[in-house]
Amino acid sequence: MRLGKIIALAAAFLVFTGSAALAGPAYDNVMKDKKIRVGLMTDSIPGGFYNEKGEWGGFDYDIATEIAKRMGVDIERVQVNNKTRIAYVQQGRVDISVSNMTHTRERDKSVDFSITYFFDGQKVLAKKGQFKSVKDMVGKKIATMQGTTSEVNVKRALKEAGDPNPDQSVISFQKESECFQALQMGRVAGWSTDASILVGYSAKEPGKFELVGNFLAEEPYGIAMPQDDSALRDAVNAALQDMWKDGTYKTIYNKWYGPGTPFEMPLAGQIEMWP
C-alpha cells in the first residue's frame, strides 16, 4: 500500500472517531457543560410567548426552567416554531424541546418524547354566536398551522361533517398569531388548534370569541429530545414526576390556567407516576 493512501486512511479514521467522540449522548453533554438548551415557542399564548413588555414567559417556559433547576444545570432558551421544534432536536441545536407539541407515533419516528406533561384537546375558535358545531362551518374557511396535527384533524372533521372539499376549506399558516389575525379580520370563519392556545389568544379580546362544538382530537403534549438517549429521558421524566408529587406542577399550572386567570382551563389529566 502506498504511503499516501495509508496517510489518507489514517486521516479519515481520525475524523470519523473524532466526530463520534464529539457526538456523544445529549445527557452527557448537558451534565458536562452544566447547561441544557431548551427549545421554546415565542407566540404560543400562554405556553411560550412575549408579553406586551417584551418579556419571554409562559407555562412551557416555567416548566422548562423548573426541569433545568431539578437537573442542577443552567438553562439556555432557544426560539423555535412549529417547523423547527423537531428539526432543532435532530440537529443538536437544542437538547429538549418544550413547545406545546403533541406526542404522536409519526413524530416518535424522528425524536423521543417524555411522558405526557400537559393534557389538551383540539377545538375550533370562532366569533361568538355564529356557530354551534363544526357541521355549521362546512364550506367556510378555517385557519390552522401548517405541518401540525391540527391541520390533519380539522380536515378530517370537516370531511366527516360533509364538506366536499376540506383541503380547500382549510388555510394553513406558519404562526398562531397569523391564524388569530386572519380570524380577527374575517378572512376565515374559524381557527382550529389546541384549546389552550385558543383560550390564550381569545383572552386578548374578552367576550368576542368562543370555542365551537366538541373536541376534534386529544392532544397529549410531550417534551421532545434526541432518539435513544435514555439518561436524558429519565432525568426529564423524573423531574416532571417530582414536580407533580411536591405540588410545583400545579402551582405553575394554576399560575397560567387556574381560576381567575385570563386563560382559565380545568386540569384534565394526571402525570404518569412511577413507584
Rank of each mutant, 00 (worst) to 15 (best):
R85H: 14
V154N: 07
E55F: 06
G58D: 01
A64D: 05
L125G: 08
A11K: 03
A68Q: 01
D163Q: 00
G207W: 10
T42A: 13
T102L: 09
T261A: 06
A189D: 11
Q79I: 13
K250P: 07
I36M: 14
T148C: 01
A268L: 13
I75H: 04
Y257E: 01
S114K: 05
F13C: 12
F209H: 09
F13A: 15
Y27R: 02
E76Q: 14
V80N: 08
G213C: 09
C179V: 02
K250H: 15
T248L: 02
P25I: 01
L158R: 00
D112Q: 10
K35F: 07
V89W: 06
A143Y: 02
Y221E: 13
K159V: 04
P25E: 02
M41E: 11
A157P: 03
A238G: 14
A161H: 07
S19D: 07
T251I: 05
L3A: 14
K141N: 10
T65N: 14
F180Y: 13
L40R: 01
L22E: 03
I7K: 11
N237I: 02
N214L: 11
I45W: 03
V80T: 11
K32S: 11
L267N: 09
G222A: 04
D33E: 15
S114R: 02
Y249Q: 04
F59A: 01
A12Y: 05
S230Y: 12
K53C: 04
L125E: 03
Q227T: 12
K53P: 03
G269E: 06
D234K: 15
E205Y: 11
V111D: 01
G139S: 01
G258I: 03
V124D: 05
M273W: 00
T251H: 08
T84S: 15
D62A: 10
N165M: 04
F180S: 04
I271H: 05
L267G: 09
V170K: 02
T148H: 00
A195Q: 13
Q130P: 02
V15W: 07
Q130N: 13
R105C: 00
R77I: 14
D194C: 04
V212K: 00
A235W: 09
M31P: 01
M137T: 03
Y50G: 08
E210R: 06
A87Y: 05
Q91N: 14
A68T: 04
M31R: 13
I63E: 08
Q91M: 15
G72F: 11
F209A: 05
F131G: 04
M1D: 12
T251D: 15
F131R: 08
L211W: 02
K135Y: 09
I115N: 09
A231V: 06
F13I: 14
V236H: 03
T248Y: 08
R107S: 04
C179Y: 08
S99F: 12
K141M: 07
M137P: 08
E264N: 08
L211G: 04
F173N: 00
A21E: 08
D246Y: 07
E52Q: 14
K140H: 12
D242G: 13
E264A: 15
V138I: 11
V30H: 02
K132S: 14
K34G: 00
C179M: 15
G39N: 09
T84N: 12
W244V: 09
G47Y: 14
R85M: 12
A217C: 00
Y117D: 03
T42P: 08
I142Q: 07
Q181N: 15
R156L: 13
V152P: 03
D229I: 04
D112A: 13
